[in-house]
Design a protein around this nucleic acid. Structure first.
Lengths: 339, 339
DNA sequence: TTGTATGCGTTATCAT
DNA sequence: ATGATAACGCATACAA
């Protein structure tokens, strides 16, 4: 019983199978170019030794990894979870592996993660939104790394993207809210700087005011990171306002749930005393009581189609068209019309 | 303007800096062994070229990657999110990168992921729970991959692990429930096969019955995967029972929230008509109305200490002690005493 | 402190 | 169909 077992390599397999390393390699990659006889011998040797190809070596030699990298702002809440899940499933079906990392909404971390994923040999990248330094786009361009942006869509931008129009979506919701008679609207927004989704959503609300001939400058807005607790605190602060809002529109569902929670703690009833709206339609939106009025985003479709689009970009160069998806309103119990 | 930019390598940096590749390499790794002068030249060249070391090549040459792999059953719900987040933060502080993949609770997928992470050069592995084929442990042993198990702890098992006693924790909760006068207890459990946490939790409830001199065999139990919708369906099914339960104990918070949701839809009040309990104390537990009675698990502490322990195992061989953590009850509105 | 040379485990080219 | 062998990009032992 030697205790000095080594990790088996292609060489080991070749020796055991009695063929050359080239044959073993072919057997594992392009098995149709190998005789039945050799294939059997090789497979037996692979099985016997428990051989697994060294990824780094393979990447270096083949200059392909069948790995796609995705960088999202956060894994902590469920905003990106469903879409990413669909993305990964679709990639897996086509033989690709997904590597995910998160940035905590920090641009410098994102830049670092991009380099790291490229160093790891990612064949393509999925990033969230448009807003980032031009230097990053240049870097990706120089290295010819196919990159697809997701969760956002602007026709005027050149980068290939798949997503929806955050601004127009929120505009639609704001219009509904105003049509219901609300005038005292307060907003809990995500941090707008460096986040075109958050910015678009906030703008969408202002658009609604303009459409209704109201002054968007008078809307009380609190910007805060996407966390339940932050939504709660922002809500409490907004309710101190002498002109108490009749509705609090939130930049996403997480903030909205925080707002509802604090309302409950403050003894305020939703929607009788104050209405609340969200954005994203994550699972949470239907768990809270009352259920949350929000903007539904086709996360799974987005993830699935992002995978298809990105693989196409990786496999045939020159491709890379943008895809616009449609969002839709989900009117639920947390929003009521003013009588 | 040549459009044929290449990815810069160590060689390129060396040429631009006017030194050898060895000096560049040293400068990037053990910079204290390089003269001030060379260092400056090298760093300028690195900056100029936008050089990033090729990960695969580095791994192959150094036989170290400073990468830790973690394989969890699912990313879809928040069960593992917080602990993993703490794990990754602690790793990052010590210069390690975390690679995560999930298995959808399928053992064959886990085996595949383990191989994949090792092929990618993971220096160490974090796995969830004990229950897996002995062949996998042998495989890890042969390859000398330091492996730490988490989310579970059994003193009698030899593998290094960090976690808590699922069975004893649930036993404590069951005792509380029975002390409150409940006798008609129904259970919604996770799938027990191949999941020692789910199994321990279910056993813990039975232990509570035994302790109280009751027959554990008469408990209605439904096993179902951890998803909200499944919890809801199981709840509905359990309530069909002629001897309607006064409390539904769930294997985790996700199932419990599903149960509460369906109760609401069925017009049943929690806890007046039926009590509900969970396990894990994820964020969700305090979002639902009423708040969920559950078992609190020190996720963040577990993640942080798992990182420390695993790094120690990677850096000094021969280490690898197990760590037991304590859970605690969180009694909230979803459970009430029977009058 | 620095440079030279070797090896890491694969794939791919080129013969055979 | 198969086998040598040359890359791939980096770290390191050894020499200087």
């Amino acid at each position: 019983m030697s205790s000095d077992q080594q990790i088996p390599t292609l060489d080991d397999v070749a020796k055991v199978a009695g063929v050359s390393t080239a044959t073993v390699s072919r057997c594992l990659n392009t098995s149709e170019m190998v005789s039945e006889k050799s294939r059997v011998k090789v497979m037996q040797a692979v099985e016997l030794l428990g051989y697994t190809p060294n990824f780094g070596a393979r990447a270096m030699a083949a200059k392909r990894t069948f790995t796609i990298g995705a960088i999202i702002p956060t894994m902590e809440n469920a905003i990106f979870a469903r879409g990413l899940q669909a993305f990964q499933e679709a990639l897996h079906e086509k033989g690709y592996t997904l590597l995910v990392s998160s940035t905590a909404y920090r641009p410098d971390v994102e830049a670092e993660q991009i380099k790291s994923l490229i160093a790891r040999g990612a064949d393509g990248l999925l990033l969230i939104g448009y807003a980032r330094d031009q230097a990053i786009y240049d870097y990706l361009d120089r290295r010819r790394i196919p990159t697809l942006l997701a969760w956002s869509f602007h026709a005027e931008n050149a980068q290939p993207a798949i997503g929806f129009d955050n601004r127009a979506s929120m505009h639609a919701l704001a219009t509904t809210v105003l049509d219901m008679g609300h005038r005292d609207v307060a907003v809990i927004s995500g941090i707008v700087a460096g986040n075109d989704r958050a910015e678009g959503r906030l703008q969408g609300i202002k658009d609604g005011f303009v459409t209704h001939g109201l002054d968007p400058e008078q809307i009380p807005v609190i910007e805060t990171p996407y966390e339940i607790e932050n939504g709660a605190n922002a809500f409490e602060q907004l309710m101190q306002n002498p002109k108490r809002p009749t509705v609090v529109m939130c930049g996403n569902d997480v903030l909205a749930v925080g707002a509802m929670q604090r309302a409950h703690e403050m003894g305020l009833r939703v929607p009788e005393d104050v209405s609340v709206t969200g954005f994203d339609d994550i699972e949470l939106a239907r768990i809270v009581t009352p259920q949350l009025t929000t903007v539904h985003v086709p996360h799974r479709e987005m993830g699935r189609r992002a995978a298809d689009a990105l693989i196409k970009m990786v496999e045939k160069e020159g491709t890379g068209a943008s895809i616009q998806l449609q969002s839709s309103l989900r009117l639920r119990g947390s929003l009521r019309a003013l009588t």
